[in-house]
Amino acid sequence: GCGGGGGDSGGDGTGAEYTWRMALNGSAPGELGYDMATFFKEKVEELTSGRVSIEFYGGNSLGSTTEVLEGMAAGVADITCESVGTLAPFTNLANIDIMPYIYNGYDHFQAVWGGELGQEILDTVGNDSGFKLMGAGYRGARIVTATKEMKTVEDFAGFKLRSPNLEGYIKVWEWMGSAPTPLAMGETYTALQQGTVDGQENSILDSQSYSFQEVCPYWILTNHVYSANTIIMDKAYFESLPEDIQSALEEAAVYAGEQIGQEVLEREDAAKEELTAEGVTFVDVDNAAFTEHFSGYAEANFPDLADWCNQIRALAPNA
């Protein structure tokens, strides 16, 4: 590459040794990646006494996630906060982020990502893809919002559902017997209204931010995927940094992950109250039955991830 970016400039008036462009999906506070990045930025600037300064470029203004990651070695952006799964184009292992039914709840998620296994996943994904991954932020379990009430695995047979145009997500819904329809997020609301699709899947908070409660009266708590946000930098550039900066970055990322996790829990509770008041029916499903239905999923679709999935399952708090 071109040597780790044009980030190190001192003459921009901030007095910082390192001024980094941070690429973000969200454009304002309230979006989880943006908020995790804010915790991170404040902590980094505090820990380095202002030697590092981070500027936000929200709303994908530096490019889509893939473009940012691809251009990071050249300096398109210096740092980003994204889900681990967005690294799937670089390494298959990153798909661990979207494996269905390997967690049974928030505590399980924290047990994995707050411990050695989580660190091992971050390091392995990073080494395979050429990035440095730091910290893990809970994003809220993914659920299904639907125009009709769904309860059992069987209910999902033939169910038309919007999914991201990613093989990993499409396979989940094919395994369920549903009819996944890849659609741009911008077209989804209209598609739900017009009945092109009967549902979509996202976290509660994201679904609320897209106002899907206006078109989907039933929110099915499938909790099928627990994905993690992480702070990402170019690996070679990260390793070229002084050690005290490196450790400050890592400490800040872990801190940001913990903070955002707590926030998400609180926001989800508040969102559920608001949504119920707006007429949304939250439907509990028998998670054990769904987990059972997905027992051979990784082996069949992502054989090299099966072992990782088992290690994650083994850390279930009540297992």
Binding site: C2, E67, G71, V76
Partner: peptide
């Protein structure tokens, strides 16, 4: 602006 020129083909494609 001292920005990387790879942005040019990358963004054009995107």
């Amino acid at each position: 602006a001292d920005l990387p020129l790879i942005v040019l083909p990358q963004r054009m494609f995107a």
